[in-house]
Simulated assay, not measured.
Amino acid sequence: MKQGNRQASWWILAFCLVISSLVVFWAKPLLALFSSDPEVIRIGIGYLQIEGSFYALIGFLFMFYGYFRAIDEPMISVVLTIFSLGTRVLLAYLLSAVPSIGYIGIWASIPIGWALADLAGLYYLHKKAVKPADCF
């Protein structure tokens, strides 16, 4: 199990690094496929650069979803999903209300929600008496 999780983690990091790089560095051409409005492209670039930089977090979250289903604990996957979505909604509401942050807070809430759900996944991994050190 330890070797499998370690390999999965490396593959997630490698794949997400490639995809994140493409999204972050090719944001303008990607957005130009959908709009020629300079304001839409400018705002979209900011969004893609914030969210795209953290794709590894959602990659690990997907790994946790699969892991807990594989060990016959599908409700933990449901809890992680609800936790991720709930924290994103709450953080989007709270952060966007700060005038100096505004709509960027909505974008930032997405990777923050992923990170918090990843931490919850690690917590459940530990709680299920499967030591993270045995898995990674």
Rank of each mutant, 00 (worst) to 15 (best):
I50T: 15
V23E: 03
L116M: 09
K127P: 01
F54N: 14
E73C: 08
I50D: 06
L80H: 04
V98P: 07
N5Y: 06
L31W: 00
G52M: 08
L119I: 11
A133L: 13
L95I: 09
I50G: 06
I50W: 08
E39P: 00
V78M: 12
V18M: 11
I101S: 10
L48S: 06
I110P: 01
P132V: 13
S100M: 05
I110A: 12
F64Q: 11
I19E: 01
I112F: 07
I101T: 13
S36P: 02
N5R: 10
L122D: 07
I110R: 06
W10R: 13
S100Q: 06
S77F: 12
F25S: 14
E39L: 11
S77P: 12
Y55G: 02
P29Y: 03
L33Q: 14
S9T: 14
G105V: 12
L31I: 08
G46E: 13
S77C: 09
Q7I: 13
S21Q: 03
N5C: 10
A8R: 11
W107M: 09
G113E: 02
A8Q: 10
V78I: 15
F68V: 04
L91F: 09
A32W: 00
G44E: 02
R88G: 04
L61K: 15
G46K: 14
V130S: 04
K2R: 06
D37E: 09
G59S: 09
L91R: 10
N5S: 15
L17R: 05
S21N: 11
W11D: 05
W11A: 11
P29Q: 12
